[in-house]
Structure formats: structure tokens, C-alpha cells
């Protein structure tokens, strides 16, 4: 397994499933969930969390400011 360095938390009820973060993610971490939120949107989630580097590209392009990003320098 790759070294986990970053992680994102998506506010799934605010997410509208626009897919822009998925496209912006350089490590193919994110995808739209098969499940939907209360408004019926396929919200974004970490499909491959082990890939995340915490680069903030996803939160930068997110129109709904629903992504919080964490990154650690320590390699677990």
C-alpha cells in the first residue's frame, strides 16, 4: 500500500456532485459516490484514499467550498 500523506473530508450534504474536483485531482483519489445525498447528488468521496497527497487542488476548484484538506509530513 502507498504511503498515506493526505486526506480530504467532503461535506456530503453541501456537495452537488459537479465532478470538478474529481477531474482536478492529480492522483485519482476522488470519485463520485454511487450513493446520493439528501438532494440526490452523487457526492464526491475518496475512492482511493491511499493516493491522496493533500495537494488542495480539489478544494481549490470546488464551487461549493465543501472540501476540507489535511496533510501530514509524517510518513505513517
Amino acid at each position: 500500500m502507498a504511503k498515506v500523506r493526505g486526506a480530504v473530508v467532503v461535506d456530503t450534504e453541501v456537495c452537488k456532485g459537479c465532478n470538478l474536483c474529481v477531474v482536478a485531482c492529480p492522483t485519482l483519489t476522488l470519485a463520485l459516490n454511487r450513493n446520493v445525498n439528501n438532494k440526490g447528488y452523487h457526492y464526491s468521496y475518496m475512492e482511493n484514499p491511499e493516493n491522496c497527497t493533500g495537494c488542495t487542488n480539489c478544494s481549490t476548484v470546488c464551487p461549493d467550498s465543501c472540501i476540507t484538506v489535511y496533510r501530514t509530513k509524517t510518513v505513517h
Binding site: V9, I67, T68, Y70
Partner: peptide, 26 residues
């Protein structure tokens, strides 16, 4: 272990409130 306050690199500014925006997706 990563999702801890000390590892936070991006969070929504408190100047944006928590209401979901009325705009269309994207």
C-alpha cells in the same frame, strides 16, 4: 490519524457561511 487539526491545510473561510449556495452544480 491524518484528519487532525494540526494537519489542516485547507478549510472553508469563516467569512463564507454554512448555507449551501443556490447555484447550479459546477
Amino acid at each position: 490519524q491524518i484528519i487532525k487539526p494540526e494537519n489542516l491545510v485547507y478549510a472553508k473561510t469563516p467569512l463564507l457561511n454554512d448555507d449551501a449556495m443556490h447555484y447550479c452544480p459546477g
